[in-house]
Design a binder for these strands. Structure first.
Lengths: 191, 191
DNA sequence: TATTTTTGACCGTCCGTTCAGTCGAAAAAA
DNA sequence: TTTTTTCGACTGAACGGACGGTCAAAAATA
């Protein structure tokens, strides 16, 4: 038998993994992924570099797990995963939740935009992101088709670009960006 | 006296600087600034690393000059530098020119977005960017004020976010992004 | 020849990753 | 109860490689 029960070991591992991922998100978001060293992450988590590699097999895998976790939690938040057609109320709710997510997960989004703008790093997560964006696109195209707009696909791409732009500008200067007013304007223009 | 006339020297220097900046833009845009080595840039320009340092005193200075040059040429393109109040036609022209710029200076914009998403690098160029964006903001706020919209500042920020988002999405996938259709939609919604 | 351009080996630094070994908590043996 | 054993969490020095930047010397040019 093992000195520690498997349950004890499991608990320790889960807690450490959580700690490391939180620290990594903080460090990566603040300094950018490429400019953050593993030493800094380990230091922030209060552990040694070696231990970090006991839980994550590389820096790339670590950041990938952070992104996947964040995207999954976003999907839960906006609650669009089951429907394919949505009402105008649901559309407004979706946009609203997206705005809320940007505000309450600021660090995650800083990291997200940092990663997608770095070609070699983007390759790590591009597939995950597309798998996540595609269903949204389809729901939006469906929504605009039913509304009878001239070019539903372009309208959907425009909205997603709009949300991307808001994210970009908000994370660059959260204090001064009038995010609530901008939300109203967008809902008025795009619903 | 010098073995070359001062004019010859000047011409050579200007040509080399041009070559280096073009090569650097290409390499930086493709791989991202931090992931691009000076050796790669020199190789692409067909010169040695040492010679590059004869013309630019550091990697940071090189990228900074590329950005300043690009921003200046954009200002010329959209022709908004002299007016403070603009007509609806001028507004449409401004948006149109912005879209054209994204398409014809794809590499520049890839580099631009790559840089602003990297905190330590952004610090190099943040001031230049703000000096450039501020006049635009004021012109837009002025435009929307005259139009009598509810919240001119938020409207202006929304439009700029919209343009940022289009830039972001377009550079990520230029082949498939329906940029002309999106332009029409934006002009309709924001003019 | 006189001068400038150009080269590329070299330097110091940093960083991701590894690994031989330590330590402590709990199970097993006494 | 006390001692011994076991196993996995944990450490940090060390490694290999890459990169920004330098400089002495070579090549090129008027």
């Amino acid at each position: 038998m093992s000195p520690r029960t498997t349950n004890q070991v499991k608990k320790i591992r889960e807690e450490r993994i959580e700690e490391i991922m939180n620290s990594a998100l903080e460090v990566f978001a603040e300094n950018g992924y490429l400019s953050s060293s593993i030493s800094k992450v380990a230091q922030h988590a209060g552990i040694s570099k070696g231990l970090l590699y006991n839980y994550f097999k590389s820096k790339d895998e670590l950041v990938k797990e952070i992104i996947v976790k964040g995207l999954n939690s976003l999907i839960k938040d906006v609650k669009l995963h089951e429907n394919i057609t949505i009402s105008e109320d649901q559309f407004v709710f979706f946009v609203h939740r997206s705005f809320k997510s940007i505000q309450s997960n600021l660090k995650f989004w800083k990291l997200y935009y940092n990663l997608i703008m770095q070609p070699p790093v983007l390759a790590l997560i591009a597939d995950d992101i597309w798998q996540y964006v595609m269903p949204f696109m389809n729901i939006l195209i469906n929504y605009y088709t039913k509304k009878g707009v001239e070019n539903p696909e372009a309208e959907a791409r425009a909205l997603i670009a709009m949300l991307d732009g808001v994210g970009l500008d908000y994370i660059s200067d959260p204090k001064n960006f009038p995010i609530n007013e901008v939300e109203k304007i967008i809902i008025k223009k795009f619903k």
